[in-house]
Simulated assay, not measured.
Amino acid sequence: MSRIFISLVALSFIAGLGACSKEPEEAEIIRPVRAVKVGDAAVFTGRSFPGRARAHQEVDLSFRVAGPLVELPTDIVGRGYRKGDVIARIDPRDYEVKVQDAEGKLERAKADARRAQAEYMRELNIFKEDAGATSKAAVDRKRAARDQANADIKSLAASLDAAKDELSYTYLKAPFDGKVTAKFVDNFQDVRQKQPVVRLLDTSSIQMVVDLPETLISRLPYVTDIHVVFDTFPDQKIPARIYEVGTEASRTTRTFPVTLIMDQPDDIEILAGMAGRAFGRSKSPEDIAAEGIPVPVGAVFKPETEQQDYVWVVDENTGVVTKRKVTTGKLTSSGISISDGIKVGEWVVTAGVHSLEEGQQVRILNSNGE
Results as ranks from 00 to 15, higher is better:
F188R: 08
F176C: 04
F188N: 08
A174N: 05
V198H: 02
F188A: 08
K179C: 01
V197I: 15
F184Q: 11
V191N: 05
P175R: 12
G178K: 02
L200S: 05
D177M: 03
Q195K: 08
S204Q: 15
Q193H: 01
F188V: 06
S168G: 12
V185R: 10
F184T: 06
A182N: 12
S168N: 13
A174P: 01
L172D: 07
Q195W: 07
D177G: 07
A182K: 15
V198L: 07
V197M: 10
T170S: 03
T181I: 14
N187F: 02
T181Q: 01
V185Y: 06
V185G: 09
P196E: 09
A182Q: 13
R199M: 09
R199D: 02
R199H: 08
P196D: 06
Y171L: 15
T181G: 04
N187E: 12
T203S: 07
K173D: 02
L200F: 05
T181Y: 00
G178M: 05
V180N: 09
L200W: 03
D186K: 11
K173S: 12
T181P: 00
Y171T: 07
Q193F: 00
R199S: 13
K183Y: 00
Q189Y: 06
P175N: 11
P175Y: 10
P196A: 11
L200H: 03
D190F: 13
Y171S: 12
L201M: 12
K183H: 00
F184E: 10
Q193I: 13
V198R: 01
K173R: 15
K194V: 08
A182L: 10
V185C: 05
F188Y: 12
F184V: 03
Q189I: 09
F188W: 03
